[in-house]
Write a protein that binds this DNA or RNA. Structure first.
Length: 555
RNA sequence: GCCCCGGUAGCUCAGUGGAUAGAGCAGGAGACUUCUAAGCUCAAGGCCGUAGGUUCGAAUCCUACCCGGGGUACCA
């Protein structure tokens, strides 16, 4: 309906004032109306005519429409109007617009590294990335969720070095006794050790660099039998197994994992082909000069002749294209690699301009946890993802006297998703779970209440004609429900799921107010009210599903 | 130095050109005891980092500066 009204206003501006303009309809403070537009001010700016006169003239047209009940001209040239009750009732239960229909979108997120710890930052991007993938799917896109991880590179060599120290040499048989469950933490500790040694001990640094080369070679030669290879493949398997378990736990999945070892070859080939065109040699390395593009220079192939992350990322971009022929490629990472990615994308633009044009890089902040979550110094002062989940579970159990991992998970997800993507996130498990207000459990509980009414009504009601008009509080609820489609569209256009959170919270609040003072079952207005509760619970459920927050029928 | 991100109520955040800047938490007051109270109502709380500028209109755009975080050649 919004679309129709916009179109009509645009046509009217064309007819009356001979200008081409795209009208914006805003949802203002409720007392002003259901919609407001500053169109007259925009028209006035272009034509030099009096905005109030323009407003009056456009208002006349709106007044004639059956879906509009009241139109007012206000302030310096706003038009405010109310929808008719019928128009509102007709627009309940509108699903998301399918404006991504027929498009393929690759969404890359989470990106944990094997051989390192799966930390709270990975949990965050997993939740946010999943929500973005979901809203794109709801808009009709075919979405591929992909995950990029460094199974080769300096950090792997650091871990391998410490593993070798711990085993007293390259003795894979000593590892087989270790349970897969404790393996990942053991590796993460080893990484922290290796990293320290790399920085503090020049001899260790030398050995780590040498190991780095050996690990690349191991891939090139498809070595599975040497002692180092046996250690490598076994520990690598631990990591990937741990990732799968984790994604299962938070209810997400990936269509494809791209280990760096699989993108390095293609990246190297393409970078080498473009030496002299895009890249150049400098101090024994192959670099991309960023300064001409107002960026900084980065090394793509180091002087050991090994690919850096940059080259593997170029390989990844090309692989994704080969695999999916996407219309859009979305990459979600921390903002610490913003400038890095700018350089990589600029280099990609020189090689494959079309791919760079289709790529969007979304960056988010750091998660800083408080409220009883401790950093692990053994892992290098890092908070593990599972520590956050278990802290939330504990806080919920304590606050509500019963354990429910769906509530705890919903609380964590909502706490992450409700904030606009970009700035750092301060996460407090106590607040997200045990406290009331704008939280995941509040929304889950709101759904439970609606569900319980609907369930009860199934047994008691007979079909009845609906009331033709709405009472005040019914109207507020109905109006809020009908905003859903616009909100989801906005979230999809901006790739910002937090808009949905804000909306769902306001919706639940509106419902709770209504519910507090109005009977539904055994009330003369039962039929219309049940219709509203039905539409409300549908929208709430749909919204929570877009965020991948568990929807419960009982709590 | 240069580049990027952030700075809104005691705390955590919405609001990114429109009307009197909104929520939650914490602290204060209250109603009702129900279709699930993890709820509802009311009051209190603001130099929107600072100073200029653009505009009919600025938390929002521009410029400079201050504070916090990040990046800046062989890490990811």
């Amino acid at each position: 309906m919004v679309q129709e009204l916009k179109k009509l206003l645009a046509a009217e501006c064309q007819r009356q004032f001979d200008i081409d303009i795209e009208p914006q309809l805003e949802i203002p403070d409720r007392k002003f109306g259901d919609y407001a537009t500053n169109l007259p001010l925009q028209v006035a700016a272009k034509t030099g005519k009096d905005p109030k006169a323009i407003a009056e003239s456009l208002a006349k047209v709106l007044k004639k429409l059956p879906q509009i009940s009241e139109v007012k001209v206000a302030g310096p040239g706003f038009i405010n109007f109310f929808l008719s009750d019928k128009a509102i009732l007709d627009s309940l239960e509108q699903g998301p617009l399918l404006h991504y229909k027929g498009q393929t979108v690759v969404v890359e997120y989470s990106d944990p590294n094997p051989f390192k710890v799966l930390h709270v930052g990975h949990l965050y991007t997993s939740v946010v990335g999943d929500a973005i993938a979901k809203i794109l799917e709801a808009a009709g896109a075919k979405v591929a969720r992909v995950n990029f991880g460094g199974d080769v590179g300096l950090h792997v060599a650091k871990t391998m070095w410490a593993v070798r120290q711990r085993l007293g040499g390259e003795y894979p048989e000593k590892l087989t006794k270790m349970a897969e469950k404790t393996g990942p933490d053991w590796l993460a500790e080893a990484y922290a050790e290796g990293n320290r040694a790399y920085e503090e001990d020049t001899k260790a640094k030398e050995q780590i660099r040498e190991l780095n080369e050996r690990i690349y070679t191991l891939h090139d030669e498809k070595d599975e039998d040497s002692n180092l290879a046996k250690i490598y493949w076994l520990t690598r398997k631990w990591s990937y197994k741990c990732f799968e378990t984790f994604y299962g736990m938070i209810g997400t999945h990936f269509d494809r994992f791209y280990p760096e070892s699989e993108t390095a070859g293609l990246g190297l080939k393409v970078v080498r082909e473009n030496i002299g065109k895009v890249f150049e040699e400098s101090e024994g390395a192959i670099i991309f000069k960023g300064e001409v593009h107002n960026m900084h220079t980065r090394v793509f192939i180091n002087s050991q002749n090994l690919p850096t992350y940059e080259t593997k990322d170029i390989g990844l971009a090309l692989k994704k294209w080969q695999d999916y022929h996407y219309d859009r490629s979305i990459i979600i990472t921390g903002n610490d690699i913003y400038e890095y990615m700018q350089v990589v994308l600029k280099a990609l633009e020189q090689i494959e301009p079309e791919l760079a044009k289709k790529t969007v890089h979304i960056t988010h902040g750091l998660v800083k946890a408080t409220g009883g979550i401790k950093m692990s110094s053994r892992l290098g002062n890092i908070i593990r993802a599972e520590d956050v989940l278990s802290a939330a579970d504990k806080a919920n159990t304590k606050a509500n006297k019963q354990q429910n991992s769906d509530v705890a998970l919903g609380a964590v997800k909502y706490a992450f998703l409700k904030q606009r993507i970009g700035a750092d996130i301060i996460f407090n498990p106590d607040e997200s779970v045990s406290l009331q207000g704008n939280s995941g459990p509040y929304l889950q509980y709101a759904y439970v209440r609606a569900h319980s009414i609907l369930k009860k009504s199934n047994n008691t009601t007979k079909p009845h004609p609906l009331a033709a008009s709405l009472e005040n509080e019914e109207r507020s609820l109905a109006r809020k429900i009908s905003e859903y489609q616009e909100v989801v569209t906005k979230a999809t256009d901006e790739l910002m799921p937090h808009h949905i959170c804000t909306y769902l919270y306001e919706l639940a609040q509106t419902f709770n107010r209504f519910y507090e003072t109005n009977r539904i079952i055994d009330d003369p207005r039962q039929p219309i009210r049940l219709k509203l509760v039905g539409a409300y619970s549908k929208v709430l459920k749909n919204g929570l599903e877009l965020l991948n927050i568990p929807v419960l029928e009982r709590m």
